[in-house]
Structure formats: structure tokens, C-alpha cells
Design a binder for these strands. Structure first.
Lengths: 244, 244, 244, 244
DNA sequence: CATGAATGAGGTTTCATTCAT
DNA sequence: TATGAATGAAACCTCATTCAT
């Protein structure tokens, strides 16, 4: 992402400190395409431009690569969620919307969206993986959201709901959106989503944007057509506008 | 579970038509605990009281066992969703709530809840499994829900939302609830959920009930504290009551 | 082959003594098509119209079926060769030709031709099979031919060749013809040989006849264009005529 | 057989380019003794001084080992036959004899003679093996011989026989000789032939030589005692002389 | 740092054969 | 006689990991 200070010797870089990250890049590419189990360490090595043995100089096991991948790709998201959630002064509605949109950004990035599916799949085989993900991602991210919900209930911005239950309504739709696409290739109609590589990322982004609008609108305002007088006097809508 | 009337001849039980189901029971138990890939056919056999080879008398492959499991456990749920959705005369709010509660019932049953996780995990390795699940479960279930949403929008019971997006808000929270429990062992506080065998099923059911109330309430009414006057004149609430 | 005395009850025949032969028929069909190893006992059973277990009432093992098949199909041929060879009064040339033509008849019958190939293939796995075939077929058949050759040398009808070596020139071409067809599907050009079921058996027979003429002609007269005067005064040619 | 010059580093022999050939050697030994199907990859590995997995570093499957064996041992023979056959200037009798003697050399070498038997045996189970053998060995070798025969007929050196049929008389006796020995352990009397390893290879060679003389004599001159005047005026005998 | 040859445990599937009925 | 459910050994191939160089 951030360019290294000296690119001039890139071709000749020996003992590059970038190696671990290159391994991670390669691994992620392959995990996304073939899954964790079906990806061989040798493939990762080849794609990273080194030998099988060399991979083990950087990571002690295939599992550790996955671990590092989580750390690199997903933990920052949880951290960002925590950070956004700490803006205690803010209107909780706005905070919630901000976090959801941020998470949506992650879901829209294929390099991030692939992770949860892999975790779910490998949780049985590699309990430590699941455990670490739970501790570092789920609990922090969900904790931040739960806290915002709790605060909103306390401030009267949200109705009196159990935040621990309500948080499932916050992340669930994102999860559903992600898994429908990742596992079953299902995307909302009018959303070509171009399986190809060069894919129209704008489309993907636009589709996600539409979905986030819809999600936040439903989450905050509900599905029901409210009584004619009731709907208008909601003060300021944090959701960023109703979908057309 | 229920003891067969005559156990005396158990050793000689031949041509047991129950065998296929016994294999499925055993397989499900193990798939739940260890996942599909990590469960060996021999383990399934032993747990079903058979030899390895005998399993292949009933199912031609391990994958076929999974297939049958889906058929037995999950397809009926999708069918039931379709059925409920066909009650066109009904208030769409009531129909939607009925379907969600029915799905929640499935999620609360560990023998059913385990399936989606397995599918998600193995989708990469066994694309046909995912494909079949998509066709038989996802498309039917989601289709039913989408239709109800669309009808509700048309009748004016629901606000003008894109049903294909909104459906993610219907199933997503259920999915989140399921996966948090299945993958990470996370259940809402005050919900012991007893990993043990003798588990308090009442607790599980009660917890699910609380969650479903919350989910439907948020789904239908939104998170926001409505204007004081607006909340009361919503005609008949299909959600089955607000959580305390 | 030979019709059973009472065909009237064929449909109702219980405990038919024909059962063993029916098993053999079925086995041969399948061995021809799929080979010995690839044919399952259950398939034989099904084709013979009985259950897997029942096959074992008649033959103690799959190998024993093969054994019986040899006995039934090939041993008679060796016996016939011995018999023909015993016609000591005859001109050895005529005797030799008769045996070769008789063997050719066997080679032309797919139900017989399949056997040698199977034996060759399974000799390693089932030494007893090979051993039995050697004793009952090879040694008797080759013995008969060797004896004829020896006699011919003694009577001066044949040149002074080692009969044990020369016998390879008698059976070898037949073997080559058989294996080229059986193993590689190779038949002399102008020989459609119709893999199909309804196959023109006449063609097969005609082709074999042409081959036998050629074989005997070469065997007896050699390949070389003889000196103009030498070829005509050979007394009576036993080969049945030169090929056109 | 011959000891490698430096055995001291055997344990550390890395990047041995000889490995593939060692695997082939081991496989051939075992295929000869137990057949293709009955030989386990692990046995090949052990005999080659490797682990099971290492074999797969060199050959992707057991079938590929067989394929390579054919390539190594038999294809060169077919190529040599083609080459010899191309000597168009030569007397076809001499050419034919040269090819037959060359083939006989192959048949006398147990490491080569084993191959055809294996192919014949496994043709049913591994059709691709048979197909490849047919294309690379049978068609080329038989093609070369057929061409020589055809030329001989045209030049008048051979009588007017169908070359496609006559070729069976050329290779058949060799095949018979080979299979009698390989499958049934039958060798011409006065031919101890020592199944053991240290075997008197001279005997084997001498026996083969006797057989080739006999075969060519019969093939070219026929079995019949020719008319007293006819036998002597055959010009130059290409067969290398009558036996004894 | 880097290589890549080598290891060996591990699991699905097949099928001849047995045996209770 | 006949059934067919059940057994269990057997073998190919994969791949994470190690280690001599």
C-alpha cells in the first residue's frame, strides 16, 4: 500500500523485509480462490516467488499464515470499529452508521471479505484460529457495536432493546450479504458483479452502497410503513438518506 | 431417542430400513463436532454401529451423506418457508414474522443449525454441495421471503424498499446468531447454553425466543426511538410483542 | 449349446442343474468385456439371475469360476487337438493343418478367444490358474503338435527341425492374430470386424479363413519365392490352397 | 549390478538425476514378478530406496511409471525396427532376418520381455496403457515389418502373400516363445533357463539363438521337405544357416 | 537466507467372501 | 437352496513439514 522509500533496487532486493507480506499476499490470493485447505504451501511459495522451504523461514506453519492474514486484514477493521465507537460525544445513530459503513467497506473488498468464510470453514479443524479470531475480531468489533447500542438506549436515541441481541441485527445483514456472494455467488439483481478479474469495482462499490443505505434505513427505521404522522417527525436521519 | 419396542433381537436386526437414517444421525453428530472434512467415514460407521464398508451400502460417498443430511434437515425448512409465504391473503407482516419464527426454530435446533456452517466451510472443497444447497435451500427460502417483502411493499404494509436487499435484513440476524454460536460459541449473556449433552433445551429455546422477538421488533419497527405519539397508532403488531 | 431335454418348464425351473453353467456364461460375458479383475462377483450373479451369495453355492471363489471356464471352453480344444494328433496313419501335413484349422476355429470364437488373454493377465495374481492352464491346455495342445511335428520329421514329410522350436511357428501366428485383435483391436485391413453386437460373424469367419490359409501356406511352404522348377513338384499340398 | 564408483556419500546423495531410472528399475523388477496390479507403489519405493511419497516426485501415478517403462524399454526397439526396415536397398530377406534377430534380442532380455505380458494383462484395466503401446510400439514395429514384406513381394523375393497376414507369422513365433516362458515358465527342452537371478545368460542367449535360427528357417523356407532338386537351388539363404 | 528432495501419516473407496435368516 | 447385509483388508495418492546442503 504505502510505497517503500527506495524502490530503485526492487529487482535486486535480497533479504527484503517485505517477504513476509509477499507471502501473505500470495496466500490470500489463493485462499480466496481455492480455500484454505485446498491451497498448498508450495503454491503459496511459488506465487510469492520463493521456495517451499523459505516460506517456513517466515511462518512456522500454514495455520500461522492464516493467523497473520487475519491480523493484517481484519484486526485493523475491528480496531477501527472500536475507535469509531469511542466517539462518545457523537449521536449514537451517526456512530452506528459510521461503523456499519466502515464494515461495509471491508465486505466490499474481496481481500477482506474472503476471511470470514475461511474462518467459518476452518473453525472446526483449527480451533485456535477460531479462538484467536473471536478474541481479536469478533469480541472487539461486536463489543464496540454493543457499546454504541447501549449508549444509544441510555441516551434515548434508540428504543429499549437488548444491545447484545440487537447487535445481531447490525452485523447480520452484512454477514448475509457477504456469504451469499462469497459462498453461493448470489448478488442482488441489477448487480452484475463481474466474476472476472478486471471487474468493475465501481459496480461492486455502488452495489454495496445501495445495500448499506437499505440496511441502515431498515435497521434504524424498520420495515413498517409508519403512521402518516409518525414518520416525518424523526429528527435527523443518520443513515445518509433513503434509497430511492 | 425413543427406544424401539423390541430390543432383544438387536444383534440380528437385518434389513433394517432405519439404517440410512442411523448413518445420517451419526454423521451429523460428527460433522457438528469435527466438521465434514475432519470426520472420517470409519468414524461415522463406528458411531452408527456398522463397519466402514456397510456405510457404502447406503450412501455411495461421503459427499452423498452430506447431501442426504441437507435433504433431510434443511430442505423441509425451505419448503415450509415457501408454504408459509404462499398465504397470500395474510397480512405480509404476519407472514414474514411466521417465517422468521419458523426459521428461528430451525436455528435453535442444533441438528439443523450445524448444516449451514458446514456448507459454508466446505463450499470451496465441494462445489456441488454448495450448488445443491443454493438451489434447494437458499433460492427457495430467500425467494419466499423476497416475495413476501415484495407483496408487502405493494400492499403498502412495508415501506418502499428493494426486497432483494431487504431480505438480507430478514435472514442476516438469524445467520449471525447461528454462526456466533456455532463457530465461536458466543451466545447472548444470560444464556448459559450448556455445551454439554444433557443441555437445558428450554434455555436454548427461551433464548431463541427472546432473540426472535428482538429481531422482529427491530426489523419491523426499527432501532430508532419513534416520536412519542407515533408509536402507539401502529395498528396490529405482528411481531408478537416487544421485548421487555 | 445342446438343448436341455425338457424346455417346457424353463421359466419355472427351480434348482436347475443348469445353474453352474449359467454362472459360467455370465462370467464369461463379463470377463470378455471387462476382464477378470474388473468383473465383480455381484455382476456375475445379477447377470446369471441369482444373488451374490448363491454364486458361492456353486463355485467357492471367483478364481474357481475362471478355472471352470477354462475347463469348459478351452480344455476341449486341447483334447480335440490331442485326438486329431493321434491319427497316426495320416499324413502329418494334413494332421497339422487340421489341428491348426481347429485351433483357428477357437480363436475365431470370441467366447474362447478371450480366455488366453485373461490367463496371461492373471497368471501373476493367480499362479494356480496359470499352472492349471499350463497343465491342462498348453502342455496337451503343444504336446500334440510337437508329436505331429516329430512324426513328420521322422517320416521325412518335414525337414529336420527341432519340433519343440518349430511348434512356436505353428501356434505363434494364431496367438499373434488373437492378441492383436483382443488386446489392441487390430485386425487385418479389409476386415471390418464390427465391434457391434449383431456383428457379421461371417466376416469374422471369412477373415479367419483367409488368415489360416495364409498361415498354413507360409508355415508349410515358407516365405521365399521358390526356384521356378522347385515349387510345382511338391506332391499334395495339405494347406488347402494358396491364398489368392 | 555394477557398483557405483563412490558409495561413501550414498546417504547424502541429493539431486540424484538417476532417481527416475532407479524407480523404473525397481518397478520393472516387481512388475515382472508380481504383475502391475499386484505391485504396490510402496513396494516400488522401498526397492528403490525411497519413501512412498518420493516416488510421486518423479512420476505422477503408477500408470505413468508403466508408461515410462514402455518408453524406455520397448519404444527404442520399435524405432530400431523402423530404422532397419528403411534399408530399402537391401535384400528384403536379409532385412527381415535382421529385424527378427533384433526383436529376438529384446525377447531374450528379461527386462524387455516382461513388458508385453504386462501390457496384455493390464490392457483391460488400463486402456490408455494399451492404446499408447499400440500406437508407439505395435503400429510402428508391425508397420516396419509389413513394409518389408510388401517390398519383398514386389521385388519377387517373397511369394505373393498378404503382408498384413504374413506379418503374424513373423512376430507370432517370437510372441509365443516369449509368453510360454514368461507366463508358464516353458522353455524348449535342453534349455535350463534358470529362473534365478544369477542365471546363465549365455544359455538364455544360446537358446534364443537356436530358436531364431529355427524360426527364420521355417519362416523363409517352410516346414515341408522340398522336392530333392528344389531345395538346393535357392540362391542365398538370408536366415543365417539351418540349425545344426 | 534459501533450496527442494524426502518423508510418512492419513482417508476414501472397492469388493471378495461370509453368514444369519 | 437362496438371500443380501455386513465385513474389513487393501492401496493410491496428497501434502504439511523437515533438513542436508
Amino acid at each position: 500500500m504505502s510505497a517503500p522509500p527506495a524502490l530503485s533496487r526492487r529487482k535486486f532486493r535480497r533479504r527484503a523485509e517485505a517477504r513476509p507480506d509477499e507471502v501473505l499476499d500470495a496466500a490470500l490470493d489463493l485462499f480466496i480462490r481455492f480455500g484454505f485447505a485446498a491451497t498448498r504451501v508450495e503454491d503459496i511459495a511459488r506465487r510469492a516467488g520463493l521456495s517451499k522451504g523459505a516460506v517456513y523461514l517466515y511462518y512456522p506453519s500454514k495455520q500461522a499464515i492464516m493467523q497473520a492474514l487475519i491480523e493484517r486484514a481484519v484486526v485493523p477493521i475491528a480496531a477501527r470499529a472500536e475507535e469509531l465507537g469511542r466517539n462518545e460525544g457523537d449521536d449514537p445513530r451517526r456512530t452506528l452508521a459510521a461503523i456499519v459503513r466502515m464494515l461495509g467497506g471491508g465486505v466490499a473488498d474481496p481481500r477482506i471479505a474472503a476471511i470470514p468464510k475461511i474462518i467459518i470453514g476452518e473453525a472446526g479443524n483449527f480451533p485456535e484460529l477460531a479462538e484467536s479470531y473471536r478474541r481479536k475480531v469478533i469480541e472487539r468489533g461486536l463489543g464496540a457495536l454493543t457499546a454504541v447500542l447501549r449508549r444509544g438506549v441510555e441516551t434515548g436515541h434508540f428504543r429499549a432493546l437488548d444491545p447484545e441481541l440487537a447487535v445481531r441485527n447490525v452485523v447480520g445483514p452484512l454477514l448475509a450479504h457477504l456469504l451469499l456472494a462469497q459462498v453461493f455467488g448470489l448478488r442482488p439483481a441489477g448487480d452484475p458483479a463481474t466474476a472476472g478479474d478486471g471487474g468493475a469495482e465501481d459496480d461492486e462499490g455502488a452495489a454495496m452502497s445501495r445495500f448499506l443505505d437499505s440496511h441502515l434505513d431498515i435497521l434504524l427505521n424498520g420495515l413498517l410503513a409508519t403512521a402518516p404522522d409518525g414518520s416525518d417527525d424523526r429528527p435527523d436521519d443518520a443513515s445518509g438518506g433513503r434509497p430511492r
